Computed example of a mutant assay.
Amino acid sequence: MRKIALDVGDVRIGVAVSDPLGITAQGLTVIERVGIRKDCDIIMDLIKEYECDAVVIGLNKRLDGSDTPQTEKVYEFKRMLENKMRSSKMGHIPIVFQDERLSTTEAEKILIEADVSRKDRKKVIDKQAAVIILQRYLDSI
């Protein structure tokens, strides 16, 4: 079964999925945020479409391990997604956090090395960060 990863930001959510064997992560899409309930609905549709058995959410922490202002927003997003999944008979699918420290920096570096223009990097950096988050998770299990 596949895993799905989310890089949750204030403006966009980067999404990546694993291959069916759970070995590699591929970028899927970038969701433009419209509201937490609608965002969760879109993610639940992707979970169903790709038949995912786990959701991995990148958790942004400071380098010393303490929470950032974004951390609480991500906790709230996870709570909302869990509640919506429970009410939609998807509550059996676990939602786990994966440390995402420096994932955006790493994504930026990869895109620069691939000679992606600054304008185009803005469009895909969240998706690339989700790929990094998911690959870290897959490598850890």
Rank of each mutant, 00 (worst) to 15 (best):
D41P: 12
P94M: 13
S18A: 06
F77D: 01
P20I: 04
V96M: 10
R37L: 14
R2W: 03
E49I: 15
G65A: 03
V8S: 01
Y75D: 09
D67G: 04
E113M: 14
K3D: 13
K61H: 15
S87V: 11
D41V: 11
K123H: 05
L134C: 04
E76L: 14
H92D: 15
V116K: 05
L102D: 14
I110Y: 06
I31R: 00
T68L: 12
T104M: 00
Q135P: 12
K119W: 12
M44E: 07
I23H: 08
A130F: 01
V55R: 01
L81S: 05
D19S: 03
I42V: 10
M1S: 11
S140H: 07
I125K: 06
K89H: 09
K61N: 06
S103E: 10
D41L: 13
G22D: 04
L28C: 05
I47K: 01
D19T: 12
S103P: 13
A54C: 11
S66Y: 05
A16V: 00
M44A: 11
V55N: 05
L102F: 09
L6P: 04
K119M: 08
T104C: 03
A16D: 00
Q135A: 08
R33C: 06
M44G: 06
G22K: 08
A129L: 05
A5E: 02
D10C: 09
S103W: 02
P69S: 13
L134Y: 03
I125S: 02
N83A: 11
